[in-house]
């Protein structure tokens, strides 16, 4: 970022220096003002620098939020806590803030006062929505399930259709012969299921 800024400054000083040698450039804003008044810098006034920090920051925030449901949920460690997403969002907000500060301090040199503010509000709302969803929304919506079967209790039997509409019951599954992949010869088909892991999940709708 600093390198880009220095390069911009260098180009600016060179061009404005070429156009009006009589002005001593001490302060960029002042120099610009002088050359603008002298008419020499009119073209330059239109060429304010592209505020890349604002755009990169907003893109990072956006990416940091959408990459969680689209990609990082696949990795248990990054899903349980958004280790990958929080730094992206934080970095994005910092860049956005820096870009905004620059836009407001040097509005004559750098664009972004208006769209930077709009992007900042959107990014803040977007990241707020994400943080709320992850740290509050996901935690306070689940039922207490006080009457769910507990350890030591007998699980109530049930019968439900599987994905091919064959009826499956819990007792049936517990009593069905089970062949471990490691089974050989006579062991095959002889082993009874030691138990069933039952997974209730939210579904994909």
């Amino acid at each position: 970022m600093m390198r880009f800024w220095t390069q911009f400054r260098l180009v600016y000083e060179l061009t404005s220096g070429m156009m009006s040698n009589k002005f001593q450039i001490r302060d960029l804003g002042q120099a610009h003002w002088k050359s603008y008044r002298s008419g020499a810098g009119e073209g330059l006034a239109m060429k304010r620098s592209w505020n890349w920090a604002v755009w990169t920051g907003a893109s990072l925030v956006f990416l940091g939020v959408v990459s969680y449901p689209l990609f990082f949920v696949r990795f248990p460690g990054l899903r349980d806590f958004p280790w990958a997403n929080l730094p992206m969002i934080a970095l994005g907000l910092v860049l956005l803030a820096l870009g905004l500060v620059r836009a407001f301090q040097h509005p004559d040199l750098c664009r972004g006062k208006i769209f930077g503010s709009v992007l900042a509000v959107l990014a803040l709302a977007f990241s707020g929505f994400f943080l709320y969803g992850i740290f509050i929304g996901a935690r306070h919506v689940l039922p207490a399930s006080h009457d769910a079967p507990r350890v030591g209790q007998t699980a109530p039997d049930f019968t439900l259709p599987d994905s091919q509409n064959h009826l499956v019951s819990l007792t049936g599954a517990l009593n069905s012969p089970f062949t471990p992949e490691s089974a050989t010869g006579a062991e095959k088909g002889a082993a009874q299921a030691a138990g069933v892991v039952l997974i209730f999940y939210r579904g994909y709708w």
Partner: peptide, 30 residues
């Protein structure tokens, strides 16, 4: 309405041997 995430281990006699109720639906049993 949907099901909350929950995992149960049922032994061959039908008894519950282990349960897992997450309190945060982004955190699931491994």
């Amino acid at each position: 309405d949907i099901s909350r995430p929950a995992e149960f281990l049922i032994d061959s006699s039908g008894k519950v041997r282990w349960v897992n109720f997450t309190e945060d639906f982004v955190v699931r049993a491994r």
